[in-house]
Design a binder for these strands. Structure first.
Lengths: 266, 266
DNA sequence: AAACGATGTTTCACAGAATAAAACATTGAG
DNA sequence: CTCAATGTTTTATTCTGTGAAACATCGTTT
């Protein structure tokens, strides 16, 4: 275990910690922040001053309390609607692809369609339905079905009241059976399908939870059924669930890596 | 000139400048960033490293290029949909209220309604329609009419195809006259109304431009007509236009005062 | 293929900047 | 009016951020 070299600039890191603290609980004063972060008042004061000059925090002039500033919002909008998700998922998708050697898909729901936000191509090139930027059905495909399962009941009803196209002989088009499938997905907390959207393909999908606790996306491992045995079924599932958990954690307001937090300064 | 104390922490300020640079032009490498910011490569490298550990920037592992990270998005969403606008406008509204001693309103459009995002009460308490969080009409009120004037033609058509309630005898309910009024607003670049929503009240409204160049909100000065003379008409108008420009500038991707840091002292 | 140039990464010594502590100012409560 | 709590400012010391330059890596050119 070679030491990971610490290039971290402490002052900057403290400033970022301050921002996180303000995001976590806004409208705090200097003293309160200093106490909860284990910093001195003067330090917090100067950090806030610096952040304020650039609009990253704003100060209520009367009450001398601080909150996140408008510039955070301006920069955040640069990322676009799904920006946070995409940026959070990017490295995790890379890792998942490397682990499984299979295709990896990040899918969200748009109304009654699924939408492929991003993909990673596995080692074995196989032509699958998933393609970044592509709309797909909700009632077929590992990630899509999972999103449907966790969607609002009204969305499920609306989706099931549409004609259900059969993409392969294995596509579930029977509404009662589809509802059963959705129920099983919710019970399991994941979804594994075979051949239902692409003939000869499997898909192992896990749910991603947004900052508000709702399920906002799915990440899935997909490949050729020829390479899908019991052993891989297990490993892919675990990998997908771990990846989903990792992304969900990153999207949570508290952020990643609580473990290494500096608390030992007592 | 006596410098009013510089509490700025240089390291933090540089990090923030780096974030701004990445927001301005993403997918830059270390060298490119160092050059454009006038920093050394090693410094930029370490700043990026620090920012990356907290997810504020993300690195494309293959191409070694950096972009804003997901954490920016997570924090940004904390501000809510209109967060950036609200936070950008807050101090400007305070200043405008102090300048004019009148009520100040920040209004956006929501479909075919107006919505009061925030208000500041002037010295003279007067009961007006505007109240934070309140929906109002689009065809009456200084800020609302201005928003309608700059809305998409389809929105204007839709708004005019609805019944036009007369809030006072002065409310414009004639569709042809209303279209004329909208045209004049666009020609002027501002809007001044009297008594059209609240009897006995004036409103001087100016348009706020978002980062994408479209008009996203209005800021207005409102009060009792009894205090509205030619002189105040001019001063309020100038103040409103200045305030709108200031907020628009803050919302632009390049941010405020690139060339000269004009710090308004109170 | 070898040499080059451009870019990212790492090391290191030193100036000066960030920091903690404590004094000072201000505000609000009892 | 006094006290307590908070924000602001000052200052001395140390430790950290910094620039320069060496090193590594990669893609391109000759």
């Amino acid at each position: 275990m070679t030491e990971p070299k610490d290039y971290k600039i402490a002052a900057v890191d403290r400033a970022l910690a301050l921002l996180e603290a303000l995001a976590d609980r806004p409208d705090q004063g200097v003293t309160s922040l200093a106490k909860s972060l284990g910093m001195t008042k003067s330090l917090v004061f100067r950090l806030l001053h610096t952040l304020e000059e650039r609009g990253f925090v704003s100060r209520d002039p009367e009450r001398a309390e601080y909150a996140l500033g408008y510039r955070i919002g301006v920069l955040g909008e640069r990322l676009g609607k799904d920006g946070a998700l995409l940026y959070a998922a990017r490295p995790v998708m890379d890792a998942l692809r490397d682990q499984t050697s299979e295709n990896v898909n990040l899918v969200v729901r748009e109304g009654l369609k699924s939408y492929v936000l991003a993909t990673r191509a596995g080692r074995h090139s196989i032509r699958l339905f998933a393609q970044a930027g592509r709309n797909g059905p909700l009632h077929a495909g590992g990630g899509s079905l999972l999103l449907l399962a966790y969607a609002d009941p009204s969305v499920i009803d609306a989706a099931l009241s549409q004609p259900l196209e059969a993409f392969t002989p294995y596509t579930i088009t029977d509404r009662a059976k589809l509802r059963q499938a959705l129920e099983r997905i919710r019970a399991n907390g994941y979804n594994i399908v075979l051949n239902d959207l692409d003939e000869g393909a499997f898909s192992v999908a896990a749910p991603i939870t947004g900052a508000d606790g709702t399920i906002i996306a799915s990440i899935s491992v997909a490949g050729a059924v020829a390479r899908f045995d019991e052993e891989r079924r297990e490993s892919h599932l675990k990998a997908a669930l771990d990846a989903a958990a990792e992304i969900s954690e990153r999207l949570s307001i508290h952020g990643p890596g609580e473990s290494g937090l500096v608390k030992s300064r007592a």
